[in-house]
Amino acid sequence: MDIRQLEYFLAIVDHGGFNRAAAALYVSQPALSQTVRSLERDLAADLFHRIGKRAVLTEAGRALIEPARAAVRGMETARASVDAVQELRAGRLDIAAMPSPAVEPLTSMIRDFGGRHPGVQVRVRAAFTPQDVTDMVRAGAGELGLLTTSGPLPERGVVSHPVGVQGLVLLTPPDGPFPPGRPVAREELAGHRLIIVQRGTAVRAYVDELREHGVEFAVAAETEHRASVLPMVLEGVGLAVVTDSWRRTAERAGALVLDLEPNAELRIALISRRGPLSPAARAFLDRALTEPR
């Protein structure tokens, strides 16, 4: 068994099939299949059920995912350590991030880091809830994670590094029901149509708590695609509660952004796995923690 075999195996898992994995790796599909069959012989177990053009993980394949990621991550850390001698002129850093902090402060963090280490590619991987971010960092799918939460910061298996706080705001069309410049009390949301996001986020928790306080509203749409919220607001589908990180983007797009009363204070944190980090992750973390946000 070697790292290349594990990288090919994970590419099939991450890209959903042999053909897409081969295209992403810039190798031929027969070469990819041969490498994976060699890995299966080494392990004496089938890793995929091959059903037509589909590749479905076997139980053995599912069991291999986490140790394979750990092995590949360890090799990438070793390679990145060599790059560190060359002042991080090359390498890649994977960051698992929730949609809202991925808008800000992650944009500023990547800008600052990229200005110092332009040769290091930062790859942002999507995660929808704080638990998703934590699970991805624990499993090695992201070396760092960025999340917002109204609850305690995660501790089991990771190290949390607070980087700031954010509040919540209300997005409305420019001709919406509330005047600009005045905070909106939660009771004023009664009777309106709201665009909501999936459970497990602080934004969804705030909206769910409205009904606990007697504020009845209609759900205009529920979406897991956070990027679709702003377009739906601008098209008049409904109003939306989002984190303050969307303020600048929403205002530039023409939406009205209003403060909420009472508000919620969300903590923003970078999380890292316990143990040694790659030089790129360490440099990114140090930069993010020293720069004011």
Score class of each variant (00 low, 15 high):
T134F: 01
I95M: 07
Q166S: 14
P174Y: 02
S81P: 08
L189F: 03
E155F: 03
L256C: 09
P231L: 07
P130C: 02
G176V: 13
V13K: 12
A264L: 14
S100T: 11
T149G: 01
E66S: 11
A78H: 12
M1V: 14
L260F: 01
G91H: 05
G254I: 05
F9E: 07
P183I: 06
M232G: 03
E265R: 11
L285E: 03
I196G: 04
V122S: 09
E265L: 12
P118T: 12
R73L: 14
R226F: 10
I268G: 00
E188N: 01
H49D: 11
V184W: 00
Q34K: 15
E251F: 10
P231Y: 03
P177W: 14
I110A: 05
P67M: 07
R54C: 01
F128A: 07
R138W: 00
V120G: 14
D175G: 13
S108P: 06
E222K: 01
Q86L: 15
R20V: 13
L57V: 11
D132K: 06
L194E: 04
E222C: 06
H225L: 11
S100V: 05
T35P: 00
V237K: 06
P173R: 15
V137A: 07
L277C: 10
W246T: 09
F48C: 02
A281N: 04
H49W: 11
Q5M: 15
Q166L: 14
V215R: 09
A23M: 13
A70P: 06
H192N: 12
A21T: 02
E261F: 06
A227C: 01
L25I: 01
R20N: 15
E212F: 11
L189N: 03
G200M: 02
F18I: 00
V165H: 13
I51C: 14
A281H: 06
I3P: 02
R248Y: 12
A80L: 13
F9R: 11
G157P: 10
Y206P: 01
L171V: 01
